[in-house]
Design a protein around this nucleic acid. Sequence first.
DNA 1: TTTCGGCGACTTTTT
DNA 2: GTCGCCGAAA
Length: 684
Amino acid sequence: MDILSGLNPEQTEAVTLPHRSALILAGAGSGKTRVLTSRIAYLIQKRGASPHEILAVTFTNKAAREMMARISAMLPISIRGMWIGTFHGLCNRMLRAHHKDAGLPEAFQILDSSDQLSMIKRVVKSLNIDDEKYPPKELQHFINGNKEEGLRPHDLTAYDTFSRTRQQIFEAYEAQCNREGAVDFAELLLRSYELLKRNELIREHYRTRFRHILIDEFQDTNRLQYQWIKLLAGKDTAVFAVGDDDQSIYAFRGANTGNMLEFERDFQIENVIKLEQNYRSHGNILDAANAVIRHNTARMGKNLWTSDAGGEKLRFYQAPTDMMEAEYIVEEIGSLGREGVALSDIALLYRSNAQSRVLEHALFNANLPYRVYGGLRFFERQEIKHALAYLRLVHSMDDDGAFLRIVNFPARGIGAKTIESLQADAGSASLWTKARGKNKKLDEFVNLVESMKREVSGASLPEAVETVIEMSGLKSHYLNDKDGEDRLENLDELVNAAAVFESEGDPLVEFLSHAALEAGERQSGEGEDAVQLMTVHSAKGLEFHSVFLSGLEEGLFPHSNSRNDAGGLEEERRLMYVAMTRARRRLYLSCAQSRMLHGQTNYNIPSRFLKEIPEQLVQPIGYVEERAPAFEKKSPYRIGANVFHPKFGEGVVLACEGMDQVQVNFRRAGVKWLALEYANLIAI
DNA sequence: TTTCGGCGACTTTTT
DNA sequence: GTCGCCGAAA
């Protein structure tokens, strides 16, 4: 099949661009992933590129897997030479290959966020610092924030005791990481960046190798990730960046849309290709979403359109209480089901996780199957972390994090007192080195770990996992625990995961990295036909026949915490935009006059975002007559109407704001906002 | 050492 | 309303 068949002109242009860097602004539902994968297939098939020359980077493992699957479906050849993965995955790969030059032990281990947090707690304690004054959570944010700016402790200037202390903690934390051979997520990136920066040989090697770098969800990159890309791109490298500034919803964790503008400058992008044709949603849904996002000022400018005009109006329901809102939603789901819509094609979206409970309650009462996304993931479960900690300790005795996690789990009578004295003995050495000969119980533990080590050496990975689960006593512990059933199942699942795990080097080291880098699917039950419940954030990238967007109230959505600064409000609006554009055919908007939150009743007014949706696109249901007007008053002009202005000439109405303002695209004078009171517009 | 009860927090989340 | 953490009692 031809790679280009079925692509629209803009998509084709993007896929077939000559060898130079490019920025693709890809709106929601505009075929972004398709363009990205087609580009790779095109480079290989039509431009004679070798898979070896291609590096493609994504944000999630899921996206990376999807990309690989799609490319291998398009190409008859093996894609093994390609580097496709997340930023962290690719940095890990690079650091494993050059661990010596990066100053890391061969089998360095990766700390996930919770490992990192406990490491910070340990460091704070060892420095005798008050964790009330310096909360570990904040320190974690501080450390990661600095690393993401490319800053090490010695790069910081401290003017007062507070910042000096934080700097000291940062320093001690790094020292402890180095002692244990541990690397946190931000460190993976920063190390890799510094490696490329300092080592010319390695840098030039990758620069000549990767002639094509492709980046997905470019709007979500942080500063360090962008700098990493910049370092990696040689003079003959073409960087193909795909993103949508309107869908940037992760600024709160460091994503920097400014990278898009910088990219245009740094890589001398001549023309930005915009993919504006939406293949997902009906016209009314798209018009409404466009009307909302237009209220943002910091935009690169893009207007989605569809040939699939019209469709059903959006439905709006204002309920007296959150319970009644949920009941309304459940009723509607029932009738959608009877119309033949699959339950799994229906999504209930909300701004914050706390809102799911009332919805779950209503769904449960109505006996409708549902699936909630979010929550604990496989490799984050305590029983899994415990088992992995045994593996870690067996593999590397200096791993204090692993030692502390399991020294008394299952309980073997080694308490805080013993540990404290052990830590005092150890100083800057690892706990393991001082554990023997301290007391009887610790000796037993040391012997246990050593006999595990003997058993495990030479065993296959799944055998090792199984041995550790048995010998540690985890298995019998959970057998005796009345709620241990699920945990035992998960431990079995861990053995399975180890059995199917493929590795190229040391299987244990790679398996442990895998566990840290890929927290695993959230839960099973993928295939069942169930209503999908999730936050708007986790819905990004997905689409559904029908979407219910609930809790559209001031203080909730937009969230009260983002009300203060303008940037926060614009991010909330982008979130609203993302939420609305998830719907293909039907979009329900709802809010409640009163809502139970944090154990007390709140009375909220409808979200300001509702007012930004043109009234004629919305079908109100039920109570709405009594409410204060939530929607924009009908403008005398319709979007798309032709108008004439005495000075600017002919134009087309792009948007209306209330009764008195319109945005017009004039054929000669360009796009302008006009006050109807003064403008003397004439409809033609 | 373990367990239980009280108190405070509480937006969004991937690696 | 619920979860997680911390301190006091068993």
